[in-house]
């Protein structure tokens, strides 16, 4: 009997897992269907480089259809309900999809509206539109105070804000306006990065470049009149240009389907990536509540584990492999340098 594998989401995680599954499982053993609603597949890491003129946005977008290998059924639709009890997924077009295996890979979303005045005052590089706007804004910037950082945690790709800061430093230097600019970096916990030994290194680089940093700074509000941001901890910082990672939440359909609280990230078994007591329902990518980076690299490592587990099961073996939280990602630190971070649950 052919197994039905249903993947929800056509972003990084949905694309990687479905292609890996198709590579491992012959078409006669499983149907693979992906449901997603992206207009185009945008390679988000380029968001750092587009505002600084280091990358053309036209090279960062592709049609999602183009990314799925032969033998994957791609359905363009919006998921409106996920019913794990009855193994049914409903979509906006009125269709119902059933499955033997369900993989939720719906990612998360930006919620700038959670901070008053974000839309009118802050810029960001967390969407293609945001990066293109920021590019225009930077072109007209001729010096002043720039405040950069994540407004809160969690957010996608923890190193991205410091990577952007280092590339911005280089950009300002090239344009000859670094001497007229103060860069202030803000970060929510009590160091400049979540992982302690990385934070020590980044602080050293910030010190060398005279980039000032303010830790334990969780953005609470933006005062558009005084052009200041205020933190939950009671500090304020004036700005001429504000580049903030917008707050993030999980998808509304996740909360509406009762799979998570109102913040929307799904609790999963950290070694099996399963949801609740359902051993045929998996969650990967940014949609999870796991204590590891929300990154394409995470989606990739999780997919390695999960695709081989499902493929083994379908071919009659029992796999007792577990995911250990391993992730590796390379991050840029400016001056044509980069470093690779390796981490896991331990």
């Amino acid at each position: 009997m052919s197994n039905r594998i249903l993947v929800l989401g056509d972003g990084a995680a949905g694309t990687i897992i479905s292609n890996k599954l198709r590579f491992l499982i012959p078409t006669e053993d499983a149907d693979i269907t992906v449901i997603g609603n992206s207009k185009f597949h945008y390679f988000k890491p380029d968001g750092i480089h587009i505002p600084l003129g280091m990358k053309r946005y036209q090279d960062s977008v592709k049609k999602p259809e183009f990314l799925f290998n032969y033998g994957i059924n791609y359905v363009k639709d919006t998921i409106s309900n996920i019913d794990v009890q009855n193994k049914k997924v409903s979509t906006k077009s009125g269709k119902e999809h059933t499955y033997d295996y369900l993989i939720i890979a719906t990612g998360d979303r930006l919620v700038p509206e959670d901070i008053p005045n974000f839309a009118s005052e802050a810029h960001h590089f967390y969407s293609l539109e945001g990066s293109l706007e920021l590019k225009k804004k930077l072109a007209g910037f001729n010096g002043g105070k720039i405040v950069i950082g994540p407004s809160s945690i969690p957010y996608q790709c923890p190193p991205a804000p410091y990577e952007f800061t280092f590339q911005l430093y280089r950009y300002l230097n090239k344009r000859g306006i670094l001497k007229d600019t103060e860069i202030h970096y803000i970060f929510p916990p009590n160091r400049v990065f979540t992982i302690e030994n990385v934070a020590v290194y980044i602080e050293k680089l910030f010190d060398e470049k005279n980039i000032q940093y303010h830790t334990m700074f969780n953005v609470e509000s933006i005062d558009s009149g005084a052009r200041k941001i205020n933190s939950l901890e009671g500090e304020e910082l004036p700005y001429d240009l504000l580049v903030l990672v917008p707050p993030h939440k999980g998808q509304e359909v996740i909360t509406k389907s009762g799979l998570a609280d109102e913040v929307g990230y799904i609790d999963v078994d950290k070694h099996k990536l399963t949801y609740g007591n359902y051993d045929n329902v998996f969650v990967i990518g940014d949609a999870t509540n796991l204590p590891i980076s929300k990154a394409g690299a995470t989606a990739h490592f999780e997919s390695e584990y999960l695709a081989s587990k499902i493929a083994s099961e379908i071919s009659g073996f029992i796999s007792d492999d577990e995911y250990d939280g391993a992730v590796a990602c390379t991050t840029v630190t400016g001056d044509e340098k980069a470093m690779t971070l390796y981490f896991s649950y331990n």
């Binding site: 945690i153 969690p154 929510p188 916990p189 009590n190 979540t194 302690e196 969780n218 939950l232 913040v263 204590p291 649950y345």
Partner: peptide, 16 residues
């Protein structure tokens, strides 16, 4: 079972 700064961020979330 969660690692720093996980517990601190959970505390801040509850504080809000």
């Amino acid at each position: 079972g969660s690692f720093c700064p996980g517990p601190l961020m959970e505390l801040i979330k509850a504080y809000k």
